[in-house]
């Protein structure tokens, strides 16, 4: 056991805080992430992390908690994307990209001012790549509150969100307020991104959001199982990352521990690749999606098209307008 858990792992307070906040962030990210991947909004999710970066660095500048900056700017960003039309498939990547570009510009400015004002050292590194071992235990209550809000929103929206994520037209026909659901989801996404930005850094938080969810969705088709699998994978890679980083203080000779965020991202990527192995797929009973029928084939090809091309409003079958 000693060579797995190096001395002091269980008694160190920074480790406790890292495990708690990392775990909470992983759970929220995984739950929100499953819907993000289902809705094909990985780019929006990632863009929100960059928007959060601007918020986090802005928060440092005025001296408030980075978490408030992350979440506050994330919510603003979500609203901006909604306003310029991320909910429509057409041109959505461009609208997302523009918000992202403008936000990174703002982040560049804030970080520049952070650095030149001299108030904070290591701002760039702290905001962008996180510093899970230096988190303040007093952050835990606010983290818990935000995570309850995010998961609560997903739980409240669960069924309309699922319907809207798989077939927008059907959802709209059944009276689901699609736009409102989408906006609510973006808000939950912003909170989730803010939380994981705190844990593993703003620009890497995409990993916790997308990685476990995409992996889970490769393993199972059922949404419930996917949510559970994503949470397990997310928490698993986060805790393993914390452990390995802690251990690396002892293993790497030159006092430079491997950054915990990088380890977590690496583990996430490995998990994703593993889930594609035929052996693992056989184990979970999920086959590679095969083109089975003409309709299915058309759907699959339509999906590739609709993600980049327009969806004409006239004479269009509901199938192709599905948000994917």
């Amino acid at each position: 056991m000693h060579w797995v858990f190096e001395p002091g792992f269980f008694s160190s307070e920074p480790v406790h805080v890292a495990l708690v906040i990392g775990g909470i962030a992983a759970v929220v990210s995984a739950v929100v992430g499953v819907f993000t991947v289902l809705r094909g909004q990985s780019f929006a999710g990632h863009a929100l992390t960059d928007v959060s970066t601007a918020g986090g660095s802005g928060a440092l500048l005025v001296g408030i908690s980075p978490l408030l900056g992350f979440v506050g700017f994330g919510l603003l960003g979500a609203g901006a994307m909604d306003a310029i039309g991320v909910q429509r498939v057409r041109g959505r990547d461009l609208a997302t990209g523009i918000v992202l570009g403008a936000a990174t510009g703002l982040a560049a400015l804030f970080l520049f001012l952070d650095t030149t004002s001299g108030a904070t050292t290591g701002a760039t590194q702290q905001i962008l790549f996180g510093s899970i071992f230096t988190l303040d235990p007093s952050e835990i209550p606010i983290v818990v509150v935000f995570s309850i809000v995010a998961v609560g929103m997903i739980a409240a929206l669960y069924r309309p969100l699922l319907l809207a994520s798989t077939d927008t037209d059907l959802a709209a026909a059944r009276g689901v307020p699609v736009r409102l659901v989408a906006l609510g989801f973006m808000a939950a996404l912003a909170v989730a991104v803010g939380l994981s930005a705190l844990a593993i850094g703003a620009i890497l938080s995409t990993a916790l959001l997308i990685g476990p969810a995409a992996t889970a969705l490769r393993l199972t088709n059922r949404i419930g199982a996917a949510l559970v699998a994503a949470v397990v994978i997310g928490v698993g890679v986060t805790w393993l990352g914390v452990l390995l980083s802690y251990d690396s203080y002892y293993w790497v000779s030159d006092q430079n521990a491997v950054p915990v965020s990088s380890l977590i991202v690496g583990l996430v990527f490995v998990a994703y690749l593993l889930s594609g192995l035929p052996a693992i797929r056989r184990l979970t009973g999920r086959r590679t999606v095969m083109v089975v029928t003409e309709a299915e084939e058309a759907r699959l090809r339509g999906q590739r098209v609709s993600s980049r091309a327009a969806v004409r409003s006239d004479g269009d079958s509901p199938r192709s307008r599905r948000v994917l």
Binding site: R90, G91, A298, S306, A309, A310, V311, R312, S317, S320
Partner: peptide
């Protein structure tokens, strides 16, 4: 079958 040409 179906061509979705982007007005943009």
């Amino acid at each position: 079958q179906k061509v979705l040409l982007d007005p943009d």
